[in-house]
Design a protein around this nucleic acid. Structure first.
Lengths: 205, 205, 205, 205
DNA sequence: TATGAATGAGTGTTCATTCAT
DNA sequence: AATGAATGAACACTCATTCAT
């Protein structure tokens, strides 16, 4: 199952030790990004912080971008799993509020990491690799399908657009809040809720 | 009194030719960022596209960051000037809608540039240099002071927070729309309006 | 008395399984060189193709050079054994033609491998290890001693020089033919024969 | 005229200083190959020996291979120019002897360099770039057209094959002689002549 | 002053080799 | 003995910056 794409992980670790190493590398990458930003994010620094050598890093990742992508996917999966649980909540409002809450807490926990990864997601190299994964849009869209959602969101295209807008809106507000050093997740979630529900009520169909 | 800060332009061009060169360099920087992204943004490429030499670039800018900052300030000023005109419009709704419109049109004209500069604005090196300039927050805050705005925005802290939130929300939505290739500025502005006015109506005071 | 030279095989395999492993490694090395050239020739690739691990490779060979040398010796021995049989043939012409034929067939069977090994033979690290082995010169020189050979090859120095020249001439022509993709061994052998016999007839004594 | 192929020189030097630098880099590459072999041939070593920095090397050559190719072309051109002058000599024998002489002297002057470059010429990356250049075959073929050459070389295919064979034969003999440390160019040329004229007289048509 | 050649620290990546399991 | 994970020195290459002309 190992692949030779420049972005796919090089080999699936078979021994337990190897699994630990991969985990350590991803966590180190996250820490370096959070602490030192893109500027300090280089393969040697990541390996060092992971307590490994560069060579080890390259055993599992065919290049720096592959490491970044793996980290992106890891964070996205964390968010996706938590967000998926909110979809089932009864009622549009409860589900959306929970969704917002999950997003806020995830992004505020390591604000710099979250922001930098958001930026990385925009890179053309990653678009293809990310397009099929963790579709937050679809989770949101599913929420917008709920019985008590405005009727016009029965339209799939509109729903999709709304999901995109809301995700972007949330990301923008959370990233900015993180950059300002905000820590009060509840307050931020409330304000985001105001924008989100306002959007849903008023967006032209 | 001319300064030697690593971010301040090296010399204020007094001759017309010099002004022209600086303009060409900034425009070249903008074009490179728009077309090739951060990846292709290097001093040699900028100088080449400007029809100048690297040496010339360094005559006017003490370093790459100073060039980036100058570009940031240029774009910010363009936006600021257009946005400032909207503040005087009568009524909260008219002013805000105009403000949104200005923001959408500016950012959609060169979506990649806008997004990349947004990212750059977050860099610590630039925070100090940008903090005193072009305060979009204050423009927005001024709009929120209007007679027909919700009374709770008389509170300066709340107003400031709302302005921050709204700017972030707008940026998030416009950047994402630009990344998706959206071109219909009016439609985007309408959707942003929905979120903005919803936020203002519902944000907890 | 087993040695720890960096070129001598680490241990003489006594068990059959070990012999088999060593064979597999050598054959894998040959295949990698033939298919991927020097560029693809690395210990991990060789081990993988042999169905073994790098660790195993290093159990039998103290280093990459030792592996290369062993391969060189294996190929040389193959050639030597076949060539030695030609020496006994009656008459200079028959013997020489047979010798040429053997050389052509051996080198054309895996032209890239042959060429790359020829190049490796020149490396200083290998000179000493190869100098005492498989002396093709001596086989050729023996042929040049035959009764019907030109009388001036009674001189040992001249004979030795001629043997060197002829081997070099043959290698050069076969390598080039292999590189061009020639497959007709007989035709090539004929042309080589023309040069070889011409040389013997005319070389100044 | 600057190119973006990975093998074409990056920019044509315009200032005199730059021309000197390029010359120095090529000469340094030649010296490193001659003295330290492929093992010591790396871009930093070449730059250092040229009294330049790596960066300078990469201003003129887009990569190590491009440097190697440029050196190959330089050496080939030297040989080609000298060899071309021999074609006009009257008579097959005089021309061929002169050709051999030129080849021997060129290759013996820096035997290791000559051999290593011969090896490099075989690399697939270079085949295309070299195929249209300096066609020694054609020079030799021209010589084989002379009035006093065997009539069967009127056939173009046969002539081409003979030229290939003779070049290969010469290279093989000279490289081997160089490796053995031979210095007597005249003697070597005589022996090569024996093989060459023997080939021409006896090669099957 | 403008040019563009030169610099070299920094970074990504490879691969021969070692060693814990 | 065999495995394959880990190591790290070595090397290719970039690019912000300097400086001779």
């Amino acid at each position: 199952m190992a692949a030779s794409s420049p972005l796919r992980p090089r080999k699936t670790p078979r021994q337990q030790r190897a699994t630990h190493t991969v985990e350590a590398l991803l966590e180190a990458a996250a820490q370096v990004l959070e602490a030192d930003g893109l500027h300090g994010y280089n393969t040697n620094a990541v390996a060092r912080r992971a307590g490994a050598s560069v060579g080890t890093l390259y055993q599992y990742f065919p290049g720096k971008d592959a490491l970044t992508l793996a980290l992106l996917l890891r964070e996205d999966r964390l968010f996706h799993d938590a967000a998926a649980a909110t979809v089932a909540l009864p009622g549009l409002q409860a589900a959306l509020n929970a969704f917002i809450d999950v997003a806020v807490r995830q992004q505020l926990s390591r604000p710099n990491l979250a922001r930098l990864l958001d930026e990385q997601e925009g890179r053309p190299e990653f678009r293809a690799a990310l397009s099929g994964k963790y579709r937050f849009h679809e989770l949101l869209a599913e929420i917008l399908c709920k019985a008590d959602a405005p009727a016009r969101f029965q339209d799939a295209a509109l729903r999709r657009l709304a999901a995109d807008d809301l995700l972007a809106l949330m990301r923008g507000m959370i990233d900015a809040a993180g950059e300002r050093g905000e820590r009060d997740a509840d307050h931020l979630a409330q304000r985001i809720g105001a924008a989100v529900f306002g959007y849903l009520a008023a967006v032209p169909g």
